[in-house]
Structure formats: structure tokens, C-alpha cells
């Protein structure tokens, strides 16, 4: 449709690119907060660091309403079935950010009751190091995830390209 100045407002793109662009800018996080990292997650969404600037402030505790699970804190063997179940309940496409040393690798808890990294049982897109990571680091992780979504290189996209999600 022609505009008042005579130019055209038409934009051509590929459907996947546009979908990815819309997805990356409205991530709804599910904070799976268990420990210290959850406190830093709270700081990240609070007024000072304000995750809303990156379109990811709509924190949802229901897996049905969220796109990205932020595993914030140590996951123990007792908690593992719960994490898996909540992940399974999320709608596709779904992403996972593993926040902090414990969620990434078990951290310095090399011990009898601690999962040595959540990627033992769910696919992880972005690993954010730190014990706990600063809010800046988590924001960096969210931006990384946005890039992955835009370039369609998330675990979800890679699996889909192979011919189906799981």
C-alpha cells in the first residue's frame, strides 16, 4: 500500500525469519529457581537491571505459558524428575538457559546428591557461568539465546532440522 510520501511499506522476508524475530523479542521465562542463582535472577528482573528492556520480563511459573526455562540453581537427584517433568510440559518451541555453575556442571558440589549438570537429562541452549552469575551475565545469556533463535541454531531448531523434535 503506498504511503503519503509515495514510498512503499512492503517488506519481504522468509516466514521462518519473521517467526524467529517475533519469538526472540518476546521470550517468556519460566524461572526454575532453586538456590542462590534464583536470588540473582530476582535481581535481574527487578528495577535495577530490568530484564524488560530485552522483552523477557513476563515471568511465568506455569510451563504451559513459557518459552524459555531458566534453570537457576543446584539441581539434586531428588529434584531431577521434577525438572524433567516441567520441561516436558512446556509448549514448543522451547529453550533452556542453564544459569550458574551448579546447573551447568554441578559446580563445586561433586557430591552424592547433586546432578552434575542439567544437560544430563534436558537439552541446554545457553550455559551462563558464574557462582552465581551477575545479572549482567544472565542478560548476556538471554541475548545469546536471542541470537541463537534468530539464526535458528537452538537445540530445538537443530533437532527439528534433523526431522523432528525427539
Amino acid at each position: 500500500m503506498p504511503q503519503k510520501d509515495g514510498s512503499s511499506a512492503l517488506l519481504t522476508t522468509r516466514l521462518e525469519t519473521m517467526l524467529a524475530w517475533t519469538r526472540k523479542n518476546s521470550l517468556w521465562p519460566l524461572p526454575f529457581g532453586t538456590a542462590c542463582c534464583a536470588i540473582e535472577f530476582m535481581s535481574t528482573v527487578s528495577s535495577h537491571y530490568d530484564l524488560a528492556r530485552f522483552g523477557a520480563e513476563v515471568v511465568r511459573f506455569s510451563p504451559r505459558q513459557s518459552d524459555v526455562m531458566i534453570v537457576a540453581g543446584t539441581i539434586t537427584d531428588k529434584m531431577a524428575p521434577v525438572v524433567k517433568r516441567i520441561y516436558d510440559q512446556m509448549m514448543e518451541p522451547k529453550y533452556v538457559i542453564s544459569m550458574g555453575a551448579c546447573a551447568c556442571t554441578g559446580g563445586f558440589y561433586r557430591a552424592y546428591h547433586v546432578v552434575q549438570g542439567v544437560d544430563e537429562f534436558i537439552p541446554v541452549d545457553v550455559y551462563v557461568p558464574g557462582c552465581p552469575p551477575t545479572p549482567e551475565a544472565l542478560i548476556e545469556g538471554v541475548l545469546k539465546l536471542q541470537t541463537l533463535i534468530q539464526t535458528r541454531q537452538t537445540q530445538y531448531d537443530l533437532q527439528a532440522a534433523k526431522g523432528g523434535w525427539r
Binding site: 532453586t34 538456590a35 540453581g73 543446584t74 539434586t76 531428588k78 529434584m79 521434577v82 551448579c102 563445586f108 558440589y109 557430591a111 552424592y112 546428591h113 547433586v114
Partner: peptide
């Protein structure tokens, strides 16, 4: 409880 038992005492 125990969902965050990180084995502090053993560590």
C-alpha cells in the same frame, strides 16, 4: 524437604 540437599557436610 531435601530438594536442595547439596551435601554441605560431606563436602
Amino acid at each position: 524437604i531435601g530438594y536442595l540437599h547439596r551435601c554441605f557436610e560431606k563436602m
